[in-house]
Computed example of a mutant assay.
Amino acid sequence: MADAGFFVLLGPDGAGKTTAMKEIARRLPSVRLVSTDAGLVRSEHALIARLRRSVVEEVLPGLGRTYSPEFLASLLQTAVVHLRDQATATGQAGPVLVDSYYYKILAKCRLAGIDHNPMYDWWRSFPQPERVVYLDVTPESAWCRSRSGMSLNPMEYYGTEPERAGFEQYQRNLRKLMLEEVDRLPVTFVEEQAGTARTADAVLRALAP
C-alpha cells in the first residue's frame, strides 16, 4: 500500500463506507482514517461531529424556511476544510483514507439547489487523491439499510417524506454528480460485496500499489 498522499472512499448513501472504514481500522491501525462521522472523528475534533449533528437535527428540517440553502452550504464548508486539513497534514505515517472528501458534499449542495457557488472553485483547487475507491450498492440494498427510509435525513431523498421512489431518484442523481467530480481521477469501482469483511478486502486491494 502506498505511503504517500491520500485516498478517497466514495459512494452513495447506504454504500457502507463508514462500516468498511471501521473494519479497516480494526485490521490495520496504521491506516489513518479521515471522516466527519462521529464514530471516526478524533476526540480533539469533536466540534466537527457536533456541527454535523446540528446540521442534520436543526438545519435540514428547516431548510428553505428557517435556513437558506446558502446557509447550509456555508456550514458544510467547515467539514470540507476539515477533511482537506486532515488529508494533507504533514508528518503522517502510513496511508490516509478520506471519507468522500469534498465530492459528496459538493454534489449534495448542488442537489439542494445551489448549482453554482464561488466556494466550489476553491474546493476544486484542493489537493487531489492518488485514487478514488467508489463503493457501489444496489438501490434495494441501500433502501433496506436505511430501514425503509426510517434512518434517512432530508439530504438523502426527494420529497417531503422518505419514500423509496424519491430515495432512488436522489441517489441516482447523487451518483451522477459525484462521478462528474472525479472523472479525471483514477477510480476503482467496488461492487456490492457479501458482508463487511469482503467490502474491506476489496477496498484494501484497490489501495494496493
Rank of each mutant, 00 (worst) to 15 (best):
S146Q: 08
G195H: 12
F126P: 06
D3Y: 04
V8E: 02
V203M: 01
L83C: 04
K176G: 05
Q171R: 06
G149R: 02
R53W: 07
R26V: 13
A194L: 10
R32N: 13
Y157S: 02
V182W: 00
D3C: 04
Q86M: 12
R175V: 14
A107T: 03
A112Y: 02
S68A: 07
R145L: 01
G94M: 10
A4W: 08
N153W: 15
L72A: 06
P29D: 02
V190E: 04
A200S: 06
Q193W: 00
L76S: 09
D85F: 14
T78Y: 15
A142L: 02
R84G: 05
H82L: 07
E156N: 07
R26K: 14
C109F: 09
G113F: 11
R110D: 06
I105V: 15
P127V: 13
K108G: 04
Q86A: 07
A25V: 14
S151E: 11
L60T: 08
Q193L: 00
D99E: 04
A20S: 12
E57A: 00
A73M: 13
A4R: 13
Q169C: 06
T160L: 11
D136N: 10
Y158F: 15
R52A: 10
Y103H: 12
E163G: 13
V133Y: 01
V59R: 07
L33K: 01
T188A: 08
R164N: 08
P12V: 14
Q92P: 13
E130F: 08
L60P: 03
T66A: 09
V133T: 10
N153R: 15
N153S: 14
H45K: 03
V56E: 03
R164Q: 13
R50T: 15
I114F: 09
Q128C: 01
G62D: 03
A38Q: 11
M21W: 03
Y157H: 12
L72N: 07
Q171E: 05
V133M: 02
W122M: 05
A25H: 10
L10N: 02
Q169V: 14
P29K: 02
G113D: 05
M150Y: 15
A142I: 05
L40T: 03
P29T: 04
R50S: 08
V8F: 00
D13S: 08
L63C: 00
F6N: 06
S100I: 12
T88G: 09
R42E: 07
D183F: 05
